[in-house]
């Protein structure tokens, strides 16, 4: 691999505030095979005497999603996107903020939308306060604390055994708690890789800056909750929210989100399951009538 530094022109979207006019500013940067977009922006900030290009890098490891921007038109995390993979052979490379999220300044966007959509789908577990009743007794004997801890954990693992909404369903075998092992756990971990970067919302033909489809991230978050221990509590609420306007019926199944996800979150499975849940709910209401 050649480590020869190459030169590249960047056209960067500059905008002083949410309501200010936007303009393109051109910069020249040097890059090697291992230079990321974030590296280039940081180098600019260090060398320039004018106001640095605003963007955020939270974790620098594509785990928090906060630096996602349009790089050459594609929504990508600046921290782990290599310039060499995207540099056009001619003309400048454009860096722009995500279009479906409000601009705070320059490349910085507000992503509160992601939290709002997952709240709307009730994609969270209602977790009680970490309280004294959960706590093992304060004791000098470590073994009793351990025993108590395993008992508590076991209890949480076995919570899956009862399904309140379908009382006639037989108890699941105690030996294989569905959410704690095997394929289900693997899916939960894969779903939990979602960094909330917003790429899926950005590329979706059905999402708008306001309204439209809620987006795949929220559906995936709901699926993660669905597979978690203690998920039974609000299952009917989640199903109801899923079928409201903006919910799964507004998904056009373009598959763009699956392509765009930088963490390969299994969005296709999550969306397919959501479609299936929604249609079985539809048939259930039809027959109940």
């Amino acid at each position: 691999m050649s480590q020869q530094a190459r030169k590249l022109e960047l056209d960067v979207h500059r905008q002083d505030g949410p309501d200010s006019a936007a303009r393109w500013q051109r910069y020249k940067v040097e890059f090697t095979a291992r230079t990321t977009v974030a590296d280039a922006l940081d180098a600019l900030a260090l060398s320039s005497t004018s106001a640095p290009v605003a963007y955020t890098d939270g974790c620098l490891a594509s785990a928090c999603g906060s630096c996602t921007m349009l790089v050459g038109g594609r929504p990508l995390p600046a921290c782990t996107t290599l310039l060499a993979e995207l540099a056009p052979t001619r003309g400048p490379l454009r860096l722009a903020p995500l279009r479906k999220f409000p601009v705070v300044r320059d490349l910085l966007t507000s992503r509160t939308r992601l939290r709002a959509t997952s709240a709307r789908l009730h994609a969270y577990l209602e977790t009680p306060a970490f309280s004294a009743k959960d706590e093992p007794k304060v004791t000098s004997d470590s073994h009793s604390a351990l025993a108590e801890a395993s008992a508590l954990e076991q209890a949480s693992v076995l919570e899956q055994a009862s399904v309140p909404e379908q009382a006639s369903v037989p108890e699941q075998p105690r030996s294989a708690p569905a959410h704690g092992t095997g394929a289900t756990l693997a899916e939960r971990i894969a779903l939990a890789r979602c960094t909330g970067c917003g790429a899926c919302i950005e590329v979706c033909p059905e999402t708008r800056q306001h309204g439209g489809f809620l987006g795949a991230a929220a559906i995936a978050a709901q699926r993660l909750v669905e597979l978690s221990p203690g998920a039974n509590a609000a299952r009917s609420t989640r199903l109801a929210r899923l079928t409201e306007p903006g919910g799964i019926h507004d998904c056009g199944s373009s598959g763009a989100c699956v392509e765009a996800c930088p963490e390969s979150v299994p969005l296709d499975t999550a969306l397919a399951n959501a479609h299936a849940d929604a249609s079985s709910a539809f048939w259930r209401t039809l027959f109940r009538r």
Partner: peptide, 9 residues
Amino acid sequence: PAPAGAWPV
């Protein structure tokens, strides 16, 4: 100080 959902690892 950060916009929502951003944290150091």
